[in-house]
Every structure is written in structure tokens, then in C-alpha cells.
Design a protein around this nucleic acid. Sequence first.
DNA 1: GTCTATATATCGATAGAC
DNA 2: GTCTATCGATATATAGAC
Lengths: 201, 201
Amino acid sequence: MPSTAKSSRYHHGDLKAALVDAAVALIEERGVRGFSLAEASRRVGVSAAAPYRHFADRDDLLAAVAVRALHTFADMVAEEGSRDSPEQQLAAMARAYVRFASQQRPLFDALFNAGLDKSRYPELTRAWAPIDALLDLVGQICAGDTEAADALAGALEATAHGHAALLRDGEYGDGPDALRIAADRAAAATLALIAGRQALR
Amino acid sequence: MPSTAKSSRYHHGDLKAALVDAAVALIEERGVRGFSLAEASRRVGVSAAAPYRHFADRDDLLAAVAVRALHTFADMVAEEGSRDSPEQQLAAMARAYVRFASQQRPLFDALFNAGLDKSRYPELTRAWAPIDALLDLVGQICAGDTEAADALAGALEATAHGHAALLRDGEYGDGPDALRIAADRAAAATLALIAGRQALR
DNA sequence: GTCTATATATCGATAGAC
DNA sequence: GTCTATCGATATATAGAC
């Protein structure tokens, strides 16, 4: 281990990651709007100037949080794959989507509510990659009809997102029941959309 | 007209409304995050201190915008009522929801993305009143089964919201087609949920 | 009801030392 | 790669005059 034993007077071996961690905690406590580079610096014990060695500006750190969100989101959705029927997997995907919004709220906010410029951060467009990966499940259901599959996939995505957003907004209450309710509803709506998919075209 | 001809040195007969107007324009241009009381004051030509005669603080003006959003939203949804079948009315409601997000984006943001404290502004919980008004349409479809009606209404609401939120996020593109696409999909998803509603319970 | 003036805070970002 | 120091901008909010 060559450089791990740095010690010296610098606070971190990986300031970049530490700043992302601090940003997540900060967003959790104060929301995206309450986040600032200065406060994040304070929390990890460095000067306000230090972050600029790693991030071009405030939005750049926010974007780094969004990228982490992307990966966490993909992991949570992917966990639901590979068993049961396609229908049950899609319902589980909707549950995972809602769970992500609830259990990783700061990440959800960074990804969907930070107002980041997507032309500046094209990676964020890949937020839907994990969803797209499940699109072949939809293909199995719609056997061959790719137009129908696309329509159904879009409806499932929007419905899962809607339940997640409403949960985040407190529409299902604040307690621990809220997540269960939202997840149940999202899963049920998923199955209903599949059952009624003829009406999509 | 007694007091309309005020003239004198004061800039407004209705500063409160003028500030709300300015706030809407400001949110349109810079987003909720870019909104400030100071800039709104500047725009209507009063000092930064003037608003405090009408609003307790920044959030208080933001909440006033959200209340306006509430009414606009209700109007747009209500316009869709009263003809066609219940199914078609619900589909039209979903279209109106999406149209609201597109054509009144600053209001949509103030209502759903401003991070306002809902325990401080309980009126905002009434955002769903216009939706609830259409719940009896759902009742007609589910004839008697109130549990099924509640489940369907919740699914319709979340699905419409999901399409609106994704549209606002640019998920359907930026051009004028985006609204049409999102509205079509939201309406279709509404009909599909109705068709597949057995799966909701 | 609005103004001026001001106190206070915080932030983003840069320059230059180490 | 981090620090100190600092500039400039902007915000919220209050006090007191008019």
C-alpha cells in the first residue's frame, strides 16, 4: 500500500467521495435547495476552496450525486429480476422504484428534482437504463408486437414514477405505512396496466 | 371608482397580486430555486422591504403562487367534465393534468416542486380536490364497490401525475410534440387502468 | 403601505502561498 | 491538493422615516 499512509496535514485520501457523501447528507436534511458547496466543505473539514480542485462548480457536485443515484437505482431495480413470471417481475420493479424514492430520498431528489441541466450532463439521461433493461420482460408479454411493448413499457414507467413522486411528496402520509401503501398500489397498478394493455393502442 | 385613481408616489394598487405575477414569471425563467423575494420586488419596482407587508417570508409568497396553481389546476381539470362516458371524461382529465404541467409549468413547479412545508400550508393538501371531484366518475364505473373505486382513483391520479412529471422533466423531448405524446400516453394509460381494474384488488 | 438604510449571513468563485 | 484570504454578489429580514 504505497500512498494510503499519507497522514500529513491533509484531511482526506478521497475528498471527492467525501464531498459526495456530505452532499447526500445535506440534501437529506435541507433538501436540494438548501445544499451548498460551502456547507459541504465545512462538513468534511476542508476549506471552501478545496472542492474546486474536484468539481467545476456547485452543479457539478450535484451531478456527481445524481450519478451515484443512477447506480443505486439500477442496483435496486436489478435485484428484483430473474424469478417469477414477467408480470410479477414488473410489479416488483415498480415496488423497487417506489422503495428507492422512499429509502434513498436524497438520491431521488438529486436525480429528479435538482433541476440539473441535462444537456450539460448527458449521463443523467441514462437514468432509465435499468428500466429499459426490463423492457424485454414487456416484450415477452406482448410477444412480438414491439409497438405494443413500447407503449406498455412507457405506461409502466410513468406509473411507477408517479407513485414514487407522490410518495416523496407525502401524499401517502409520513409514517412507515406510507411506503407499504405506495408500493402496494404501484404494484397493483402495474398488473392492471398489463391486464388492460389492449386499451393502450 | 374611489381608490383606483390613487396615482401619488406608490407604485401599486395591488402589490400583493403584482408580486405573485412577478414570482410566476421568475419561476418560469429561473426555476423555483432561482426565485427570490428580492428579485420579485425589483421586477415590480418596489423596495426589497415592501413585500414583507404582505408576506411573512419567501415561502409565504411561494405558497401564494401554489394556491393560484391550485385554482388554475382545478379549472383546467373541471373544463373536461360533463360530456361523454365516464371513461372518456377520466381520460380527458389525465390529458388536462398533463397539459397543466406543460402549459403552466411555473405553477406546476410551485405546487409540486417547491418543497413547501405542507404542515405550514395545509391548503396545499387540497391540490387533489379537483381530482377527488372526479372520483364519482370512478364510482359510476365501479358501481357500488367503493374500495375498488378508491383503488382505481388512486391509480389514475398517480399515473396522470407520473406522465406530467416525466413531461416536465423533458422525458418526452422538448418540442411541441412532447405535450401531445405525453397527453396521448396518459389518456391511453387511463383507459388501460380502467380496463384492467380487476387486477387492482 | 412603501421607502431608505442597514445589519447579518451566506454563497460562489478566484488568486496565490505552501 | 489543500490552505488562507478575499472579492463581489445576493438574500433575508428589521428599524425607523414619511
